[in-house]
């Protein structure tokens, strides 16, 4: 698969001595939606800001479609659109002028039809002549996206795009991101909403303390690291798990009324039939059963937690 962004040994040490990024290596595939997950202060925004030219790297190299972001910064930046985390907009300009300004800034000639299409796509058309200061937070967020799309970028960075927006708008944004992907735009998003990554991303990277802990296909990640649980509600409470069932590592609930069997990629499904048979042999009957699969959030927390323990 062709890479649109290639990050090699990228490090960033701020003047204060804080190591924001440590030897980051990351490839972003052309046309994918890549979600970068990490706790606050993990280095997500620093990484984005370096690729976009807002922060200087301390060492390492970033290529955007084979263009070095330092040596060939102009060519590289033509390809990138950025929606920042903060709602930073000029208060006194109109929506139309702000979007047109962004297009000009990125070296593109006037194109009122395109600007109109983008503003309409972001449901801001009826506000096009309004000053930005009169817009709501959600509208400002959409305006920032419109500005970022005004020069038809090939790569779009969305830094916490749905932070502070309501459920409807979040859904609209997810749909927009999917539309952009279909049109061939590569999307890199950072988010705190794990469900957002789970909903949209093709691949997921987890970053913590300036290091990439893991990068994988979302499906593969959930299969590899996602645990499944089989919970059996017992007909009658039992005092303890019979010795014969020790191999299954069953967990008896505090009220003694249910047992949980955990399995993952390594032993998925193996033993469920045997377990049920052995339970019957031991005279343990169950009245109901349910299965639970760990969410991306569980996986994320478990990875960050284990990284914390290691360091």
């Amino acid at each position: 698969m062709q890479n649109i962004i290639s990050i090699k040994n990228l490090s960033k040490v701020y003047q204060s001595g804080f190591h924001a990024l440590n030897e980051i290596n990351l490839e972003i595939h052309k046309g994918e939606i890549f979600a970068l997950l990490g706790p606050n202060g993990a280095g997500k925004t620093t990484l984005i800001n370096i690729v976009c030219g807002i922060v200087n790297p301390s060492s390492g190299q970033v290529l955007v479609d084979q263009r070095d972001i330092v040596k060939d910064y102009r060519e590289a930046r033509f390809l990138i659109g950025l929606v920042p985390q903060e709602l930073t907009t000029d208060a006194f300009e109109t929506v139309w002028n702000a979007v047109s300004f962004s297009r000009g800034l990125y070296g593109k000639p006037k194109n009122p039809e395109l600007v109109e299409r983008i503003i309409k796509q972001l449901s801001l058309w009826d506000k096009k002549d309004n000053k930005i200061m009169t817009l709501s937070g959600g509208m400002k967020r959409r305006l920032l996206i419109a500005k970022a799309l005004s020069h038809e970028p090939q790569v779009l960075f969305l830094d916490e795009p749905t932070a502070g927006v309501d459920v409807n708008l979040r859904q609209d944004m997810w749909n927009l991101v999917k539309e952009l992907k279909q049109s061939g735009v590569t999307i890199i998003l950072t988010t705190h909403y794990i469900e957002e990554a789970e909903e949209m991303a093709d691949r997921i990277g987890i970053i913590n303390k300036g290091r990439i802990l893991l990068v994988d296909e979302k499906k593969s990640l959930m299969t590899k690291l996602g645990k499944k649980e089989l919970i059996l509600d017992l007909h009658s409470p039992i005092d303890e798990i019979p010795n014969k069932l020790e191999v299954y590592n069953l967990i008896l609930s505090k009220d003694k009324k249910s047992v949980t069997f955990t399995y993952d990629e390594n032993n998925k499904g193996v033993g469920i039939a045997e377990l049920l048979k052995e339970l019957a042999n031991e005279g343990i009957q169950f009245k109901d059963l349910q299965t639970k699969q760990s969410s991306l959030e569980d996986i994320f927390l478990s990875l960050v937690d284990s990284d914390k323990k290691q360091s």
Binding site: C52, G53, Y73, F78, P84, T89
Partner: peptide, 12 residues
């Protein structure tokens, strides 16, 4: 205001 981000990230 923070809008400098756009200038710094633009091909200018």
């Amino acid at each position: 205001s923070g809008t400098i981000y756009e200038l710094l990230s633009a091909p200018v």
